[in-house]
Design a protein around this nucleic acid. Sequence first.
DNA 1: CGGTCACTTGATCGTCTTCAATACCAGTGG
DNA 2: CCACTGGTATTGAAGACGATCAAGTGACCG
Lengths: 245, 245
Amino acid sequence: MASQQIHPIMLDPHAALEQCTACDARPVSVCNAIPDAEMARLAAIAVVIEVPAGRTFIREGEPADNFFNITAGTAKLFKLLPDGRRQITGFVGAGHFLGLAVSDTYAFSAEAIDTVRFCRFARAKLRILLDDFPLMEKRLLEVASNELVAAQEQMLLLGRKTARERLASFLMTQSRQGMPCGHSRSRFTLPMTRGDIADYLGLTIETVSRTLTRLRAEQLIDTPSANELQICDGRGLVSLAEGLR
Amino acid sequence: MASQQIHPIMLDPHAALEQCTACDARPVSVCNAIPDAEMARLAAIAVVIEVPAGRTFIREGEPADNFFNITAGTAKLFKLLPDGRRQITGFVGAGHFLGLAVSDTYAFSAEAIDTVRFCRFARAKLRILLDDFPLMEKRLLEVASNELVAAQEQMLLLGRKTARERLASFLMTQSRQGMPCGHSRSRFTLPMTRGDIADYLGLTIETVSRTLTRLRAEQLIDTPSANELQICDGRGLVSLAEGLR
DNA sequence: CGGTCACTTGATCGTCTTCAATACCAGTGG
DNA sequence: CCACTGGTATTGAAGACGATCAAGTGACCG
């Protein structure tokens, strides 16, 4: 089918190794657990792939044959109900690892928001490699643990927070995206659409739009354009996110 | 403080080993990754503790000094907002492992629903032991991955399902609790209160009660008593849980 | 320009919440 | 044995928040 036309960017072994040691995502990814000297083994089984915005590259329910390591761009992970209702479970960027599921099929779908580049590893091959690098397995466990914590935070948001609190939480999380712990940007770009935000926060497009309008009216944020976000009152947003007003 | 009066059930080393190899929870827990011969090392650092119903034995935000392995009873895990709103992120029973968080503080609280017994391991000690048993680390990664899948399923429920669909999903999950894959009980006990169910499903007590009443009126379930549940139409519940009606 | 797509805004509707009363059940003590 | 109590569950009526339906705006693009 048309959606399967994925283009592996083939590289000779030496170039592949270059690719890995010089990879933008390496410092923030799990592969930094593998020493430089052994990097060639990882590079040997990695297939670099680039997909355009809108392309679904993981489909819930299909055989989970691969692991993925995002190196550039942003993707959304989501689950669907038969009637089309969608819940986005996360937005993932460079350094993020996908496909940990133990099951033999993927538990979620993944779609590129902008142009996404990732390394693809055949599950079987990676597993063998993993046996030789317990440090990488340790890193994976760390990553999974952190995601579990984030997932619980999201459950609190979806189960118990109001629309305003959800948006405030989301915007503060986004402002901290990719920043060193404790830091945040006061101005940033939202790569996803209002529809994506709605499906991530368990709301509708209209509610997201209205709520942003209201937050703007209250001087908590500003929206220079639809995709640009300026945080005017971080303190206010944080206390709103925690339900304190 | 009074709530800290936890009673470790001290055992001499031999008895501790007995305790572990004969443990009810071992077949379903992560410790089965450790060979019998080495079990003594695990037993040596385990502290067996029993807490009564209602006791909070993990507090969100407190230093995460221990790992826990539930061996009997049921506990609820939850997060709170400052104003008291509560989201239960899971119910955990025998075999469940708690405290994976990488952070130095717990990301959630845990409270015993009935009498709960667990093994407690000092984080530092367990980590050392883990270095010698990569197989156990592998198991932990498996467990964490499975929980992540469950968490995503719960996000779909909280973000996109109606009250009826949530209850149907919950009841079907409960009916499969502790059953071999593909099996389920048609009749079982709910150890948690309506309030707990509500806080797990992101609803109110009243909505849970009303919805159960309605499901009963529609012959999908029966409730011989408040804590007993009989599934009359499993098929119907499943399709309801998936949003197909 | 016409077309599409994303976003915004308005009016109305419905599901779930809130508030309140009542029922139920186990435990306690008269 | 029965009245009393506290916790839990059920049921009813009213209200609110967010959803749905609908229209309008603006940006981009062939």
